[in-house]
Structure formats: structure tokens, C-alpha cells
């Protein structure tokens, strides 16, 4: 596979060639809360309100660097809200209030001195429904780079991003065609290409495959494994098999009568699926509620 030559740091990591199918997470005592050493993104006591309605309650979680973390849980439990809290997208909605903080490489992105625009450049996002701009493939990729002051060769960037999203071979004959002329799966990979073109450190994906057919879904999952060599990935998914297939770590969220959007359990995917510590996690992954 061809790599995206966009990131400067972490050269030693990106030379890894083989796809890591099963991670080797640190050994930890079973019922101790999961502690990630040196996480790329660290969420600390994070709560979020839409007006008076609390959607996320006191979530603390560290997202491991260059791993895929799946966030699962029943509909409406606050997964998307938490995800959008990580790149400050929630602020675009009026009346949103947060408490706690989110550290990106140790810096609180909710600090007064931090501009959310810069945060979003460093933490990219892929949405549930593919949303390419009604523009050419090339312009779709270059938009983010241009507004962020990209100086180097544009053709190179377009090629690197499209190769990074495993789309180059399918579209390189005509980069001027509209992004909307592509199939759903290709559109989603274009959105991923567009996101990695601004060299983010973290990629957030909110149910990126739920609008796609099984074949396109598998393609995106392969791509995610490939991208995890360079990026920290957080994916929200409703598909338990997908979480099991693709992720290294899994976080389970739940809302109940007392409080909404709580983190119930977090750990290596293999542990969480085979040997959950919380009975509610077990009930959910075995399909007994949700």
C-alpha cells in the first residue's frame, strides 16, 4: 500500500507494512478502569448540554495513539455528541455548553486561547452520509488545504490523499469530474481523502459505513486499518461486527434514567467483546437490549 506522505513526525511507526488485525494491548488487571498511557486525545470529566438537556455526563477516556477506538451504544446514548465534542463541532449549534476538557497531545482544546478552527484542522471528521462538495474531485481535496495555507505542490497532494484513501486508481483518469458523480462508497472515500489532505492527527468517523453497501463497507474498513498506521481513529458504529472487526479498543456508552451519555466500559476490543466486566455491556453486545 502507498502511504500518505503528509505527516512529518512518527516516521518509525509509519514504516510498519503489515496490517495489524489484532492489537496487542497492555496487560491490565481486569476490573481496574482502563488507563491509556500517553493517549493522543484525552477526554477528562467531559459533560455536554444542549440547552438544559444533558447529553453527555462526566466522560473520561483516553484514545490511544494510532489505534482505532470504536464507540458503541444504543441509539441516542450520546456517541455522536461525544465525538463532536472532540473537535468542537457541537459549538456550531447554538445553546451548547460543556464542562471538563479534551486534551489533544496534552493541550486543552477547550482553552480560551485555542481557536476551534485550528482544532478542526488537526482533528478531521467523516460523516454518516457522504457529503462531498458539489465540486470536482480535485477541488474537494484542495479546499481544506488551501484555506489552511498549504504551500507545496497541489497535484502531489491530490494524488497522495486519493492514494491514501484507496481511491486514486478508480478516479485518476478524471479528477475534474464532480465528486457527486461517484458512487456512495467512492464518495465516502473521497470524504476521507479530503479529510486526510489537511494532515490531521486524529480522524473522527460517525457511522461512516451506515449509508453504504457491504462491499463498500469492507473497503472502508480495510482503508481504516491502513489509515490507523498514521492516524488516531475514533469511530462511532452501530454495527457490533464492525466494531469487533476493525477496532483495537472499544468504548461502550449508555444512557439511563439517572444520567445520560455515560461511559460504561472501555477496553481492548477483544476483552470487551469476549469478557465484558459490566453486565450492561454484556447485555448490549449479546443483543439483549439496545
Amino acid at each position: 500500500m502507498i502511504k500518505v506522505p503528509l505527516k512529518k513526525a512518527d516516521a518509525e511507526e509509519s514504516t510498519v507494512e503489515a496490517v495489524v488485525t489484532q492489537p496487542a494491548p497492555a496487560e491490565l488487571p481486569k476490573d481496574a478502569p482502563m488507563e491509556i498511557l500517553d493517549p493522543a486525545v484525552e477526554v477528562n470529566n467531559f459533560s455536554l448540554w444542549y440547552g438544559d438537556f444533558q447529553a453527555v455526563t462526566d466522560v473520561s477516556i483516553g484514545f490511544p495513539r494510532k489505534k482505532i477506538t470504536a464507540v458503541i451504544g444504543p441509539s441516542g446514548c450520546g456517541k455522536s455528541t461525544l465525538l463532536r465534542g472532540v473537535n468542537r463541532m457541537n459549538e456550531l449549534i447554538g445553546g451548547v455548553r460543556t464542562q471538563g476538557n479534551v486534551l489533544l497531545e496534552g493541550t486543552n482544546i477547550y482553552a480560551d486561547t485555542v481557536d476551534p478552527v485550528e482544532v478542526r484542522r488537526r482533528i478531521g471528521m467523516v460523516f454518516q452520509k457522504p457529503n462531498p462538495f458539489p465540486r470536482s474531485i480535485r477541488d474537494n481535496i484542495l479546499f481544506g488545504a488551501r484555506v489552511n495555507g498549504y504551500q507545496a505542490d497541489e497535484d502531489e497532494l491530490v494524488e497522495a490523499a486519493l492514494r491514501g484513501a484507496a481511491l486514486w486508481d478508480e478516479v485518476n483518469h478524471d479528477l475534474k469530474q464532480s465528486g457527486l458523480a461517484l458512487s456512495g462508497g467512492q464518495q465516502q472515500r473521497l470524504c476521507i481523502a479530503r479529510a486526510i489532505a489537511v494532515s490531521p492527527e486524529v480522524l473522527l468517523m460517525d457511522e461512516p459505513c451506515s449509508a453504504l453497501d457491504p462491499i463498500a463497507t469492507l473497503k472502508i474498513e480495510d482503508l481504516m486499518r491502513e489509515l490507523a498506521k498514521d492516524f488516531t481513529i475514533i469511530i462511532v458504529t452501530h454495527n457490533m461486527q464492525q466494531a469487533a472487526r476493525v477496532s483495537d479498543y472499544t468504548a461502550f456508552m449508555l444512557s439511563d434514567d439517572e444520567s445520560r451519555g455515560k461511559l460504561i466500559e472501555f477496553g481492548p476490543t477483544s476483552d470487551l467483546f469476549t469478557n465484558p466486566t459490566d453486565e450492561r455491556t454484556e447485555a448490549y453486545i449479546t443483543g439483549r437490549f439496545g
Partner: peptide, 12 residues
């Protein structure tokens, strides 16, 4: 979704 896409890429 167009605005979100743009903001998510770090556009002001």
C-alpha cells in the same frame, strides 16, 4: 452537511 464538511476541514 455542506457547512459541517467545510468546518470539519478547518475552514473558518
Amino acid at each position: 452537511s455542506m457547512r459541517e464538511a467545510s468546518f470539519a476541514l478547518g475552514a473558518s
